[in-house]
């Protein structure tokens, strides 16, 4: 019942007086920083031909900064994007896995690549809660935990992919992660418009390699180089046959 009340509350927040056409509403935080997602929102329009079809909604980061999701965080950047919620973490520790990947990226994070973790539980995940959560997971430079209105977070989630009904956008208050077993990280290059995904539970070094695949490359010069296969070696246990 508790969960259902929360769900209805969050639903109400998006249904009353949808007036701000074209804008997905903004986040309202009370004096305690606890209430959220109270501003009405219109449905978010998406044009697949623009902005790689990302909704350019307003989000607020754990740092308190406000961003346009596409213009400020995606355009011309190489990014990894995942969905999380603070209440989900115990059931499915996705932020811990992202922290392992962030550690692999080292000082490239915040310079060559950025991580955006979108809360799928925006009614609960206020910027203040996200800030505390970020501290706990050692979230540093180049990594933003973001939240927004119910509609804004939902638009992003709905646009990119959706989850089990129990934890989907419209039922985000039910988002406890109890059934969550698999998840993916989106990665791409906003400047080039190329996007892929990898499962979140691959090895962190593998994840750190994959993000390099979408980084801008230089036009090759000279004779082509051999990429593989490498010389046979029965003792090796690598996951591929490329030259080392």
């Amino acid at each position: 019942m508790e969960e259902r009340r929360k769900f209805l509350k969050s639903l109400g927040a998006t249904t009353v007086g949808a007036t701000a056409a074209g804008v997905a509403g903004s986040l309202a935080v009370d004096a305690n920083g606890e209430a959220a997602a109270t501003t009405p929102a219109a449905p978010v329009k998406i044009d697949p031909r623009l902005r790689d079809a990302f909704p350019d909604v307003e989000v607020t980061a754990h740092t308190g900064e406000k961003f346009r999701f596409y213009d400020d965080l995606i355009r011309d950047k190489v990014v990894m994007i995942n969905f999380m919620s603070t209440r989900n973490e115990q059931g499915f520790p996705v932020t811990a896995k992202m922290a392992d990947i962030a550690a692999q990226l080292g000082d490239r994070l915040g310079k060559d690549v950025f991580i955006i973790s979108i809360s799928r539980d925006p009614a609960y995940d206020t910027p203040r809660r996200l800030a505390a959560f970020a501290q706990k997971h050692g979230v540093g430079k180049g990594w933003y935990l973001v939240t927004g209105t119910y509609a804004a977070a939902g638009a992003l989630e709905t646009r990119m992919y959706r989850h089990k009904h129990e934890s989907g956008a419209l039922t985000s208050a039910l988002c406890t992660g109890r059934d969550r077993k698999v998840d993916i990280v989106f990665y791409g290059n906003g400047g080039a418009g190329v996007w892929g995904t990898f499962p979140v539970d691959i090895r962190p070094d593998d994840a750190a390699t994959r993000i390099t695949w979408v980084m801008p490359g230089k036009m090759p010069t000279g004779a082509p180089r051999r990429a593989g296969p490498r010389r046979l070696n029965a003792a090796e246990r690598l996951s591929h046959n490329r030259d080392a």
Binding site: P224, R225, A227, H240, N241
Partner: peptide, 19 residues
């Protein structure tokens, strides 16, 4: 054989070749 099969992991980038 695996090394000639074109498995997903055996990629080659611009300016590279695979036999």
């Amino acid at each position: 054989a695996s090394e000639s099969d074109g498995i997903p992991q055996d990629y080659f980038n611009p300016g590279e070749f695979w036999d």
